[in-house]
Design a protein around this nucleic acid. Sequence first.
DNA 1: TTAAGATTCGAACGAACGTTCGCTAAGATC
DNA 2: GATCTTAGCGAACGTTCGTTCGAATCTTAA
Lengths: 251, 251
Amino acid sequence: MPLVDTETRLTPANLDGRKPRTVLPARKAGEEITDSRFDRRLSKVLDHAAQIFCEKGYEGASMRDLSRAAGMSLAGLYHYFSSKEELLYLIQKHTFQTIIDRLQQRLKASADPEERIRIFIENHLEYFLANKEFMKVLTHEDDTLKNGRGAEIRAIKREYYRICLDLLEDLRRAKGLQFSGRLAVLGLFGMINWIYTWHNPRVDADAKALAQEMGDLFLRGVLNPVSQSPGLARRDENSSKPKRKNGKANA
Amino acid sequence: MPLVDTETRLTPANLDGRKPRTVLPARKAGEEITDSRFDRRLSKVLDHAAQIFCEKGYEGASMRDLSRAAGMSLAGLYHYFSSKEELLYLIQKHTFQTIIDRLQQRLKASADPEERIRIFIENHLEYFLANKEFMKVLTHEDDTLKNGRGAEIRAIKREYYRICLDLLEDLRRAKGLQFSGRLAVLGLFGMINWIYTWHNPRVDADAKALAQEMGDLFLRGVLNPVSQSPGLARRDENSSKPKRKNGKANA
DNA sequence: TTAAGATTCGAACGAACGTTCGCTAAGATC
DNA sequence: GATCTTAGCGAACGTTCGTTCGAATCTTAA
């Protein structure tokens, strides 16, 4: 799978209306999609860039930092993308697409609602810990991209959110439970996305064990009805109803 | 409470060895600590700065952005702090100290372990939602500060982590439960710190209700022993033991 | 009234920023 | 071997960055 669209290679800058510097001949329809030299080199550049963005943040990283890390001249970098902003876009898009693709594959393995949520968590954590830099750039530079590119990434994010919400509502229906889907999704996202701030491979469990533990913590919280939790003292009972006014999700 | 130490006002740049431009006369011991004109003005400057850092990030915000927001000249800002980095330090320190002070006050109200954890969550969320900008700057610019100032903030953060860990271990002892304190703390922190990425006051519940709901979710997850959770299918049982090697916490 | 500090500002500093230009090799195609 | 495209580079562009300087204005207390 090429990292940029075949037809518009080198020219995703179209997103903000800029003219492409070069126009490649369109591939014939049905032509085999190979990982060209260009794609392989770009992939390496993204690796190095993600590393630097992870260390210094998007704004804090200079193009000169990136060129040093990639072992390539400053001007040479611009052969592979049209701007620093597009570089971030390519990193985020690639990361999101990979994690969603893998998830869809794995979800085919089970129809049990609870099991499917565990698959979601494990998929997320496995990719997270194996690609720390990319995932930190994805989550930390969450609202860095603006306009067209930002909208595109936000759309993919909504898709990912939606998948998780659907999984949780399947579970709720299957078990006849009562909980706010939105709050559950965002609570779960918080738990699993926060990991990049603390995970230390020399101290903490690996992805599989971590997914097990976090899955336990979360699922026990969701699965157990309130009445079944002994000693759950509720104070100020009258303020415990959520004040949701409409269901528009914005995550 | 003055925002900077009385004796070293204007000179916290000492942290990285720079010479202060001005030295104020030391206050006599026991002299009443008043919020001077300086402190009040600095406080306003921090408000505006937090707003801009929140919008554009620390690196993305320029001193010119800050001067515009504060309605003050670029050079005039430097009367209140010695560098952009110190400005971030002052914001983060003030935020952390305020939230911890309030927590300590509130914790005096109860000795019940579960209640005390709910107090922790509610205190955090209340401050979070009432001071979104400051809390985003605190969490998002987590590892931006380096050297002396960074170490100082990290120390306060460890203190806050420790308080929460102690609360959880009190609960575990009181109820005779079994769970990883570290994972529970970090899971909880993830849930409540992630809020800044999604909370919308027009859609979501207020701090009190949110604290109730998140407290429920989290406490049910922690309180319920595994055996009491019906239908909690564990797969791959042999990989579920955490592989912790030593207990050094790094959050 | 006046002297001393506190506060504020316009103007400028050198450094670093993202990006572009013109040019060379290196591959590929005939 | 001629021709065209791809890949890569040194040098520079104009802009913006954080910070500083000296002077001007305001505040306060004697």
